[in-house]
Amino acid sequence: MPHEAFCREAGNGPAVVCLHANASSSSQWQALMERLAPDYRVLAPDAYGAGKSPDWPSDRQISLGDEVELIEPLLAKAGAPLALVGHSYGAAVALLAALRHPERIAALVLYEPTLFALIDARQPPPNAADGIRATVAQSAAALDAGDPAAAAEHFIDYWMGPGSWRQMPERRQAPIAASMRNVRRWAYALLSEPTALAAFTTLRVPVLYLLGERSTAAAHAVAELLLASLPRVERLEFAGLGHMGPVTHPQPVNEAIAAFLALHHPVR
């Protein structure tokens, strides 16, 4: 039986599908959905093991292609042309979904896709992905010791800066700590993705590539590679923001997304 992703939906009009980051869920897009719903039909699915979607059901290591397969029914339901918006892991999934069916993509918005395999393919370790590798190892060790909160602290502080986890309200900490059970599979999917950098030179859809000035070396290294490869890409960096900009500062990020969609996926 095929697995079905839980999906939030709002609005009417041209379709926009929003894919969330790791340690998050479709709820991260609530403000963007409200911003776009007057003009667009916005769909935001939960990935495997996130929100209300099922856990990954196999002993086989998950791939980004498996994540694309999970949302494929939603993409078909959305119809063409559609726009894809992705953040972090979700942006990596969005890129692969666009490669699979570029003819149905009107526009692509990416906030720091975490395709770390591209870094390793360009230069074997040690390299700019060492920080995320070390973080995953620390989080995994904490999980093995029965401490998911410590696992989450390593992960969140890597992406958001030292002390970020301890400053987070407890109500937000609990679901993130629970999600850490997936940290090894997230890392495997992102570090083992076989798609070559050259494949992205064929993706001739308009792309808005969003960056946080204060993000990690790994996120910036992926950006350097993809920005040089995507044929129709526009780069926008947010001063003072980090990797979690869509969550910590949704207003400027969402306005940039809305402006790009108005140009490349306009309401008829």
Results as ranks from 00 to 15, higher is better:
2 P>S: 12
5 A>R: 08
5 A>S: 15
6 F>N: 13
6 F>E: 03
7 C>R: 10
11 G>I: 00
15 A>K: 03
22 N>G: 14
26 S>F: 06
27 S>Q: 14
31 A>M: 10
37 A>Q: 13
38 P>Y: 06
39 D>S: 10
41 R>L: 10
44 A>G: 12
48 Y>L: 12
49 G>W: 09
58 S>K: 07
60 R>C: 12
62 I>P: 01
65 G>F: 07
66 D>F: 10
66 D>H: 13
69 E>F: 00
71 I>W: 05
73 P>H: 09
75 L>S: 09
77 K>V: 03
80 A>R: 14
81 P>M: 11
87 H>I: 07
88 S>Y: 05
96 L>A: 03
98 A>R: 02
99 L>R: 06
105 I>Q: 01
110 L>M: 14
120 D>C: 00
124 P>W: 10
128 A>Y: 01
129 A>I: 03
136 V>C: 03
145 A>V: 02
148 P>Q: 00
148 P>L: 00
151 A>F: 02
156 I>L: 01
162 P>S: 08
164 S>A: 15
167 Q>V: 00
170 E>D: 09
172 R>H: 03
173 Q>V: 07
177 A>K: 02
190 L>P: 01
191 L>I: 02
194 P>M: 12
217 A>E: 14
223 A>I: 07
226 L>G: 05
226 L>F: 11
229 S>N: 09
233 V>L: 12
236 L>V: 15
243 H>A: 10
246 P>T: 11
249 H>M: 15
249 H>D: 15
252 P>C: 13
255 E>D: 15
257 I>N: 02
258 A>Q: 03
259 A>Q: 13
260 F>L: 02
260 F>Q: 00
263 L>T: 06
267 V>K: 07
